[in-house]
Nucleic acid binder design. Structure first.
Length: 198
DNA sequence: GAGAAGATCTCCT
DNA sequence: GGAGATCTTCTCA
């Protein structure tokens, strides 16, 4: 039985305007294959980061070894380490040569909860994955997952959900940045309890 | 080679 | 609500 919704999202999904991709990623399923098990998680909160028009972006001042994936093909993972403790998971966007990425800020784990709990101790279900550093820990995502092609059935990819129910999207300022904080480039599913901050 | 800042989380008050 | 943890990356010399 092969249903189209089980396939990874194609390259064309990602190689569009970063703001459009960010909004479209809400409600999609993030699949993490680990130890012959799967964690399936719904994306509920994202932020868009672009290039020379976005002072908060890693790509603002041009290409460096770290941010080169943002300038490359769309549909790849961009994982970076920050604050000496945390990894953050992004997906690259825009056509090749144009920098862009979407930061996954919060997810709701639908399946594979046991495995996620083994990866990250949390005092509540919500606290397991309601922040960018938390969800990477729950999914055991580190720098070795930087640069994976998300359009293939890798150990990490994104697909449609079985039931693409409509959801209301809330728009807000991005979190944890100084420059560029006036831009309304953070998007989340309105009624989700897994959102990192209201 | 040194120094500063950072797309965060946890613990403490 | 605020500070500390902790280390990578970038900039400048």
């Amino acid at each position: 039985m092969k249903t189209i919704t089980m396939e990874p999202l194609p390259r064309e999904f990602y190689s569009r305007d970063t703001l459009v991709v960010a909004k479209d990623l809400l409600g999609k399923y993030l699949i993490r294959h680990l130890n012959d098990e799967n964690i399936v998680a719904k994306i509920v909160e994202v932020e868009a980061y672009r290039g020379s028009d976005d002072p908060a972006s890693h790509a603002y001042k041009g290409q460096t070894p770290r941010n080169q994936l943002m300038f490359g093909k769309a549909g790849f993972s961009y994982v970076y380490f920050t604050y000496g403790k945390h990894y953050c998971l992004n997906v690259t966007t825009e056509k090749e040569g144009i920098p862009g990425a979407v930061l996954i800020r919060a997810i709701e784990i639908m399946d594979g909860l046991e495995l996620a709990r083994r990866n990250r101790k949390a005092n509540s279900l919500v606290n397991l994955s309601n922040g960018p550093g938390k969800l990477t820990e729950a999914l055991n995502i580190t720098k070795i997952h930087n640069g994976l092609d998300l359009t293939e059935r890798n150990e990490l990819f994104i697909r449609h959900s079985e039931i693409d129910r409509s959801h209301e999207i809330t728009v807000s300022r991005r979190i944890g940045i100084k420059a560029g904080s006036e831009k309304l480039w953070r998007f989340y599913i309105k009624d989700s309890t897994f959102v990192s901050k209201l």
